[in-house]
Simulated assay, not measured.
Amino acid sequence: MSSKSTSLEKILELTRVSATRFVTTALPAAPVGSRGTFGGTLVAQSLLASLHTVPVDFVPTSLHCYFVSGGDPSRKIFYEVQDLRHGKNFIHKHVRAYQSKRLVFTSAILYAREKKDHDSLHFLKTIKSSELPKPEKFKDAAELFKSQVVENGNLERYGHLQAGFKEPSYAERFISSFHHSPIEYRFPQDMFYSHHPTDLLEKYARIRDPVTVKKTHDHDPSRTITPENDHRYNYVAFAYLSDSYFLLTVPYFHQLPMYSHKFSVSLDHCIHFHQLPRVNDWIYLQVRNPRSYWDKHVLQGEYFNGQSGEIIASVSQEGLVVYDSEEEIKAKF
């Protein structure tokens, strides 16, 4: 990684306060163009906190999260993990995130003991290799942003939609983020402004920082879970990735330019894990927008291993995103 890059481990690092209470080591940064804490940070840190409270042979199978109020990037976040049920094969956890006394986020997480014997029924949705588009078919996100948003007079047009784009440094922050964030993207050519009716967005993403896939056998409950010592950190990294350029893609399905929203906030976030998400491999995403109604938009994504074509996770999110009318947006642009 570049020296300008911030490692995912540093972004998500937690300090243990007690057996079930944790606090962020770093301040929870806001994404470029946003004032609130990045939702992926909250989802991932809640999962990481709860991982410290379960045995090493348990893995997350699903998360159901709610964004209660906007996170303040200038304040640290405290996570409290509650044990709802601790069974032989399943563990239910509830995690609350606070800033001072204000509840900002909550998640319910289901863990299952990793099976060592064969399943009676075994099926994973798989895309045939002949039907799986290669990452090379897609464009580097930073280069695509420069060509489609910054160059050829486009930056002035985007300035009509978002005031921030009137300042050249604003666009540079996006480019720097694409270059140096923990996530590497490959987008379709029309990612930032699609003119064609479609119900499917395809793209690729992966985590830049190395994350081990070697299973841990260290049962010390006081140890700190890191990308180097626990394969389950892949789930944490995926949770972070799953909220990036997800809700933001709503305009793609309505033939509108990206960044044309007036207001945007995530309401909930749900992940079902189907197998270990090897986050250093290219992950192929299929995203759909089944409903946009009363300013509430639902995105559903299926995530596949870019090599095997096997499904690794399903994600859904609802957000409150306010736009002008399509006619007004196109007239401004």
Rank of each mutant, 00 (worst) to 15 (best):
P257V: 04
F238E: 04
H217F: 15
Q300D: 09
D83I: 14
L267H: 04
S69R: 15
P31M: 06
R85M: 12
S46A: 10
E151W: 03
S5V: 05
S292C: 07
A26F: 05
H254L: 04
H274N: 10
K128C: 08
I329Y: 01
Y293G: 01
Y303E: 01
L299V: 12
K88R: 15
D117N: 01
R21N: 12
G153A: 11
V287H: 02
N280A: 09
I11E: 00
R291Y: 02
S266L: 02
A163L: 05
F304C: 03
L42M: 12
K139Q: 09
T216W: 08
F246I: 02
T224Q: 15
T198V: 15
I207P: 00
E318W: 00
M258R: 01
L320D: 02
H180T: 15
H269K: 14
V95I: 15
F304P: 01
H94L: 11
M258K: 03
A313D: 06
I311V: 07
K134G: 06
R208E: 10
T61H: 07
S69I: 04
Y245L: 12
E13P: 03
V211T: 12
S2E: 13
H118M: 11
Q148V: 10
S308P: 12
S325P: 08
E310T: 12
F145Q: 00
E172V: 04
K115Q: 14
L51E: 13
L161A: 07
E228F: 12
T61E: 12
T126V: 07
N89F: 07
A19F: 02
S260Q: 11
K166V: 05
S62Y: 04
T53H: 09
A29G: 02
E136A: 13
G71L: 11
L132C: 10
S130T: 15
A141N: 03
P55W: 03
Q82I: 14
T216P: 04
K134M: 05
F123V: 13
Y245N: 09
P251M: 03
Y79Q: 05
K88D: 15
F58C: 06
L247Y: 00
R75T: 08
F192D: 00
R35T: 10
S176V: 02
R85G: 10
E327H: 10
S46Q: 05
L63S: 08
D268H: 08
H272N: 11
H297T: 15
D72F: 01
H86I: 09
F67P: 00
T25H: 10
Y204V: 11
H261L: 13
A331I: 01
T61A: 06
S266N: 09
V56W: 01
A163F: 08
G153N: 13
H180N: 15
T61F: 04
R186A: 12
H86Y: 01
S18I: 06
E327M: 02
L241H: 04
F38V: 13
I329V: 15
D220F: 03
P197K: 13
S177G: 06
L276C: 12
F238M: 10
G33I: 00
S100F: 04
D281G: 02
D199T: 14
K330E: 14
R157G: 02
V104D: 01
K76Q: 14
Q189Y: 06
